[in-house]
Amino acid sequence: MKNTLWKALGILILVYVFAMTMLVPLGPGLLEFQDVNQVIESTREGRAVPEFQVIGFGTHWDQLPDSLQVFVQSKGQLAALEVIRVDDATHATVGLTLPYSLPAKSWNVLTNHPVDGTLLLENGLFLSDRFIDAKATWPAPSFIEHSSQLGLHFPYQPRIVETIRNLMLHVPLWFTMFLLMGIGFVASIKQLSNPRNQRDDDRAVASVQVGIWFGVLGLLTGSLWARFTWGAWWVDDPQLNGALVTVLVYSGYMVLRQAVDDERLRARLAAAYNLFAFVILVILLMVLPRFSESLHPGKGGNPGFNSYDLDSALRAVFYPAVIGWMLLGTWMYLVTLRMKRVNRQIELLP
């Protein structure tokens, strides 16, 4: 009873994770702040201003179109733009009511809407034809940050967009691989210190066998994600090369086991090689990427999914996903281990 309970729990958690991953909608965001190359009459300022278009992703500007506010912000200076009209739920036309002297060229664009909350497009506006005066200031408009009135949703991330759901697969798969290889590492140390029987050798090989599959799945999901966000299936990056090398090193472990016939010798050699493989894994996947530039999140000064990126909706799915995958991985490991032991018993039969 106790042994089946945690397995059922693991499956239940994974069912919850998959359902949430596929069903929770993505939150709103800003895609682009586009120059329309036309000049329109500003009713507020009574002069001609350039026309721009704000393009949103999953926004609801057609509800309460009058309460949409658009701001630009740079170096602590905030300016309100005039919203000329709201075209549809994701398109709005604004007039660029800014003075000729500006403190900066590059501006963040913000929209305020009671349904979507406050949205930010970093460096969405670049003005090269204005006079730059670092001291140019004007009275700040009233700005109240809205929080979103939408239900549970995943946060919008530029460039990642809908693929943020891959977070529930890619990251937990690698975590599970780490856990399994850790089990293999401990088993190999035990095998080396107590070489009399093959119990720990069975543990090591079972965990590595399952762990390689998790590593391959982690590579595949990562490759898919790279295709979407970076534009290529594979890029020459320390984190990616390290991951591939790790999987290859562990494949070498399986090759080594095939090459030795004597059981006790095989156990000892495989255990020694496994210690090497684990040290390489730790160095390549956890030490190296922190020392070098990498595209991969969380490495080389590149923000990962830290407290800033992981909002409550992501957390509610991501943490169960990690636990669920780890439980499934442990279960697969235990089944493989039992297969090894049964096979050993069968071989011993007369």
Binding site: N241, V245, L248, V249, L256, A259, V260, L265, Y273
Partner: peptide, 18 residues
Amino acid sequence: AGAGFGLTAVLGLPLIIP
């Protein structure tokens, strides 16, 4: 392991790459 140098090459290649 008594497998000669082929095994060294197979095991060594991924470890040498980094």
